[in-house]
Nucleic acid binder design. Structure first.
Length: 442
RNA sequence: GGAGAGGUGGCGGAGUCCGGUUGAACGUGCCUGACUCGAAAUCAGGUGAAGGCGCAAGCCUUCCGUGGGUUCGAAUCCCACCCUCUCCGCCA
């Protein structure tokens, strides 16, 4: 069903760098050390050199075009046959010369494009240095519950209450697919409605977005590298990908748009299905609902002025915490280390919920993620705003955060609220959406 | 899926048959100034984006759905593609 669709055309790509090429030379050392700390190998000097070549060719092309325009203007008046002939010959010469420079410019741009595509965003100075295990715990909220019986993990709970069918998921669609059944269906929808009501109250405009998006939009959002380790399913014989998150389709809304400063910040909430190949994660927490190929999610996406994005990042995180507090689930907030940031993220905070069935004696597991991507995605999207004071257009900052990722959230809900008789107490905040106070026992 | 119409600046809308002083008439919206105690109305001027050079003022280039082609020169001619709208059919 997935598979590449032969889109590796060699035509000149749209020039959409992730960083402003004009800062390449100025911040050369900073970029190089940032790449190094992120564990990305990039030839910054080659990129600087390529940018210089682009500039030189661009200037040459401008000059040549001007000469050509002047020549054309002079050809508008009446000319004798001999004059006309000479004029046409000179025009031909100029035309050839322009074509030659255009070719060189295209080559230089392709080279610059190629080199810049590998350069990730800058990182926040406070982000911990290191990799996946080097996160910093910002705070821990709520006490993990002490059970007076042996708690089950969500797999056992789901089986006992007949809530999830993994075997049929594997039979019909493959490993890491699943069917939700019975009250799990209600729980899925209740979680979405619950999260949606909270974010709507916080000023987010709700959307149900397409689940597929054009490849160029997916690339602009830089959701994952488009290589062998891609997280993205592509639809054969089309230019479409299945989205990994509504962040992609919500961001795409603003491609090539210039919004008025007075409209900012723009808060969007997208409900969508999310599809992930989970390439390279075989055997990693592969049991149950933690890592699956498809799930439903309510995602927050915000566009701000550059000076407002840091505060907005905190705001998004606070909403995520509010959602988990309402679900009565203990959690901790972590500041992701630089080496574990995706290419577009400048800084990332995750909420890890307490999952009693995880590991030997329970453990925290990621349930949400909030990223400030600064102008990285906006530059590729060409998403800008007009600043009232200067009347100039500037790149927006984009942020995204999980309101609720259903399957990941189902785990702590089931595991934390189980009782000794095998039933599940529905958190008060969720009851109005469920129409139930309890699942089971049975 | 069949038939037709069309894609031009913030918006509306000329120009395309007969290629050249058209970055683009005209209207409208918006900004500035004049008038006014203010406002409206009226008058005058201004008002797109991207990129290059420059300390700056500024100068220059590119862009009329997208990509090619013809030509000394294309919004205007040719080819392909994309999208939108209307009608018919089909369908959750």
């Amino acid at each position: 069903m997935s598979g590449w669709t032969g889109c590796e055309s060699t035509a000149v790509l749209p020039f959409r760098p992730m960083l402003d090429p004009r800062v390449l030379a100025d911040r050369r050392d900073e970029i190089a050390s940032n790449c190094q700390r992120r564990g990305v190998t990039v030839d910054v000097d080659a990129a600087v050199a390529a940018h210089e070549r682009v500039t030189v060719q661009q200037t040459a092309l401008n000059d040549q075009n001007r000469a050509r325009n002047e020549h054309q203007k002079s050809g508008r008046k009446q000319l004798s046959p001999e004059e006309r002939e000479a004029h046409v010959a000179e025009g031909r010469r100029l035309k050839e010369s322009v074509g030659e420079i255009e070719g060189q410019l295209a080559d230089a741009q392709a080279e610059l494009n190629r080199l810049m595509a590998a350069i990730p965003n800058f990182a926040h100075p406070d982000s911990p240095v290191g990799g996946e295990k080097d996160f910093r715990v910002l705070r821990t909220v709520g006490e993990p519950r002490r059970f007076d019986f042996a708690p089950l993990d969500h797999l056992a709970i789901a089986e006992r209450l007949d809530l999830v069918d993994f075997e049929s998921g594997a039979k019909v669609s493959g490993p890491k697919f699943y069917y939700l059944k019975n009250e799990a269906v209600l729980l899925d929808m209740a979680l979405q409605r619950y999260a949606l009501d909270i974010v709507t109250a916080e000023g987010f405009t709700p959307f149900i977005t397409p689940d597929l998006a054009r490849r160029d939009i997916v690339d602009a959002m830089a959701f994952s590298p488009r290589d062998a380790a891609t997280q993205i399913y592509s639809v054969a014989d089309s230019e479409l990908d299945l989205i990994g998150t509504a962040e992609i389709t919500l961001g795409g809304l603003y491609q090539d748009e210039i919004v008025d400063e007075s409209e900012l910040p723009i808060r969007l909430a997208g409900v969508s299905h999310c599809y992930r190949t989970e390439a390279g994660s075989a055997g990693r927490e592969s049991k149950g609902l933690y890592r699956v190929h498809q799930f439903s999610k309510v995602e927050m996406f915000v566009l701000t002025r550059p000076e407002d994005s840091a505060a907005m990042h905190d705001e998004i995180l606070a909403i995520e915490e509010k959602i988990f507090q309402g679900l009565e689930i203990p959690y901790r907030v972590i500041d992701i280390a630089i080496g574990d940031l995706g290419a577009p993220a400048y800084r990332k905070f995750d909420i890890e919920a307490w999952m009693p069935g995880r590991g030997e004696n329970g453990d925290y597991g990621e349930v949400t993620s909030a990223s400030n991507c600064t102008d990285f995605q906006a530059r590729r999207l060409r998403a800008r705003f007009r600043r009232a004071e200067t009347r100039k257009n500037e790149l927006l900052h984009t942020l995204n955060g999980t309101a609720v990722a259903v399957t990941r959230t189902l785990i702590p809900v089931l595991e934390n609220h189980q009782d000794s008789d095998g039933s599940i107490a529905i958190p008060k905040a969720l009851q109005p959406y469920m129409g139930l106070e309890r699942i089971g026992p049975r």
